[in-house]
Amino acid sequence: MENKSILIILALFLCSITIPVMVNSKYHSEKSIHSLHLKKQKVTHLHFYLFDILSGNKPTAVQIAQPNITIGYKSTTPFGHLYAIDDLLREGPNESSKVIGNAQGLYISSSQSEDMTIVMYIDFGFTKGKFKGSSISVFSRNPITEPNREFAVVGGRGKFRLARGFVECKTHFFDPIPSNAILEYNVTVLHY
């Protein structure tokens, strides 16, 4: 019995000894922009319409969270309400206009004043045309009661890799009772 105890203690001791291992790795490396095989920087202008529909049998924006207070229900600005979206992008402002992609993301009502403001993260993915499979990402404040708004383009993928730029947005149509809207987007994006 004593021999078994000694063997177990010896085995545990040997298991606890760490053997130094040489690892050749770094958590980063530096590359030049040319090593990424990127071509010359381009400027692209995009024009499309976003359909944000909160009503009907198949809404494209749905509320997924709200504050745990009752003032949000009575207020004209539902501060703290969070929405998930999967809005269609179309070439024109009509429902019969060609669908060119979709906008997926989140927006949250972030204003406690009468001027409704949201903060949004949206990825505009293109499913048709020259930019099929590419997207641009917008993360910005959106004061929706202002007639002309500007948002920041903070990134992209596909043909819009390393994108940056800005969006000019106007409300083309707004129905306040179900909160349905058609928004006109003019995008200027720098990319490789």
Rank of each mutant, 00 (worst) to 15 (best):
Q63T: 09
V154M: 13
L50T: 01
S29N: 10
E146I: 02
A163Y: 06
N24D: 09
G133S: 06
P93N: 12
N94C: 04
R149A: 08
G156W: 14
S29G: 03
D123E: 12
E150K: 07
K40T: 15
T171S: 00
K130F: 15
D52H: 00
H28N: 11
P176N: 03
G129H: 14
Y27D: 09
D86N: 11
Q66I: 00
L12V: 07
I85F: 04
I182D: 01
S179F: 11
S179M: 12
P78R: 05
L50F: 01
E168N: 00
T117Q: 05
L82Y: 01
A61V: 02
D175V: 03
N57H: 13
V153T: 10
C169F: 01
C169H: 00
T127M: 02
Y73H: 13
N3V: 11
L50K: 04
E114M: 10
N68V: 00
L54P: 05
G80T: 04
I64D: 07
N180G: 08
D86G: 03
M22N: 09
L162E: 04
L88C: 09
S179R: 06
T127R: 11
C15D: 11
K132I: 03
F139C: 14
S96G: 13
I177Y: 05
I144Q: 03
Q63V: 04
T145L: 14
V187T: 01
L89G: 06
I17N: 06
K98C: 12
I71D: 10
V62F: 10
V43K: 09
S137F: 13
S109M: 03
V187P: 01
V62S: 01
K170Q: 02
P67F: 00
E146W: 04
F173T: 00
N68E: 02
E146V: 03
S55L: 12
V99C: 11
K42D: 15
P78T: 14
T76I: 14
V119D: 15
M22A: 14
T145H: 07
C15H: 05
L88Q: 12
G155A: 11
H191Y: 14
N24F: 12
A152R: 14
S75Y: 12
I71L: 12
F173M: 03
V138A: 12
H191P: 06
M120D: 12
K58L: 05
G129D: 07
S29H: 03
V43E: 14
H81V: 13
P93E: 02
S137Q: 15
I136D: 14
I182M: 00
D115M: 04
L46A: 02
Y121V: 15
K40H: 15
N3W: 07
P178G: 04
S135Q: 08
H47E: 08
K31D: 01
S5I: 11
M1L: 06
L46K: 00
E150D: 08
R90F: 03
I69E: 07
I19M: 14
M116Y: 14
A65C: 03
K159D: 09
L89I: 09
N102G: 11
M120H: 05
